[in-house]
Design a protein around this nucleic acid. Structure first.
Lengths: 224, 224
DNA sequence: ACCTGAACACCGTTCAAGT
DNA sequence: ACCTGAACACCGTTCAAGT
């Protein structure tokens, strides 16, 4: 029997395909653009079809985080030297999160204990222990690096959004607007912010993030 | 003319009173519990009355962040010594965010350029410059400390939620469940995670957070 | 100036039914 | 087994009206 509908180019539904479409929607329209109904429309299907593969919307959101983390392949490289390896790994982590800024708010909620996250953590712990660090230094080192990366990306995304909504195309224009805001404030006095604004606004660049990671790595090994 | 309704014990509407009620709802029911309709009900008012004071829901959410930051009074202390002062400031920041975990997802979105945030930043910059650090060290130091704090709190909140939803009352019970999950995983091999689990799960405590902050502070001053 | 009421265009999710 | 259709109890927000 020939059934043209089930043979359509879009193929059949699956967790994978649903998550891919969901991520595309989040990338182009933000997290709030992702609704079950909108997603179903993208999949050429009724909203309820999605519930055959995910138990609810939270389930989809948890899957999205895992997808982004897996896609990033943060630990899939063989950089020489454990310190350089760690640095590259976190640079990749940052890059993959920045590619999907919409999922960031999800990290602060409840997931990140998925299989993909655990795998990356396992590999990082292995590298740090292999470098000869003690158990305490390893644990604190991981915590410092992961926390710094999550926070830095969150700040970077927020800064980019501000910059966009302020219609400040260039960095110079954005700095000019920031300075203006500082100076016209109620208290009218943010001398340090004004003086350091150029340095502070540099932290939306990969190079500066890398310096931060390196500084943390350096602080893990008592020089001797 | 006596008009009992406007003299009610709840008083009149204002931005302040709306934000206070909104924060109470977020604290007790989470961010998704905060709806305009629910908020209006709490205020004994029609949903539309809220729109007289806030242009939309985003406006309310931005206000919430500022309220939490202001309430925290992170810089309102006079601890002796710049390093101790910085440490206390970030410990306070962590504490106030943990008191209102519901607002955390908002930090990763778009605000944090409000007046309260800028004031805290200004004071931190002043302290760091006063300690004799160069402009680059000050900028990177602030970035490291703020990023670390945001990330660490996000992880801490996620961990607490996981712990709660797993109905793991005690730390021991939680560790037992985690270990079980590692060992029953598909790949079945997370040796480092299993070995270090006790150390890793300690990072939901103030003392460990403080150690992280101190390590960053130490890395700012080239020992000499 | 400040609040109300009714309406519009959406949500996530349940349930019973189709093939 | 997998998908549909209709319905339920909600959303944020606009608009015109009341006092």
């Amino acid at each position: 029997m020939y059934t043209p509908y089930t043979m359509s180019t879009r193929g059949r539904l699956s967790r994978e395909r649903i998550l891919e479409d969901a991520l595309r929607i989040v990338d182009s329209e933000g997290l709030q653009g992702l609704t079950i109904r909108r997603l179903a429309q993208e999949l050429d299907v009724t909203p309820m079809a999605v519930y055959r593969h995910f138990k609810n919307k939270t389930d989809i959101l948890d899957g999205l985080i895992e997808l982004v983390i897996a896609e990033g392949q943060a630990t899939e490289h063989d950089t020489e030297g454990w310190q350089a390896w760690i640095e590259v790994t976190f640079l990749r982590m940052r890059a993959s999160l920045l590619q999907h800024p919409g999922v960031l708010p999800l990290l602060g909620s409840s997931a990140s204990y998925g299989l993909q996250s655990l795998r990356i953590t396992e590999r990082l712990l292995g590298k740090l222990r292999g470098a000869g660090l003690g158990a305490d230094a390893v644990a604190r080192g991981l915590h410092l690096l992961v926390s710094y990366t999550l926070g830095a990306v969150a700040i970077e995304v927020a800064a980019r959004e501000q910059q966009q909504s302020a219609e400040a195309g260039t960095q110079q224009e954005w700095q000019r607007q920031l300075r203006q805001r500082f100076e016209s404030a109620d208290i009218a006095e943010f001398p340090n912010l004004v003086a350091l604004a150029p340095k502070l606004s540099r932290f939306v660049e990969e190079a500066e993030f890398g310096l931060g990671v390196r500084q943390i790595i350096r602080s893990l090994t008592p020089e001797a």
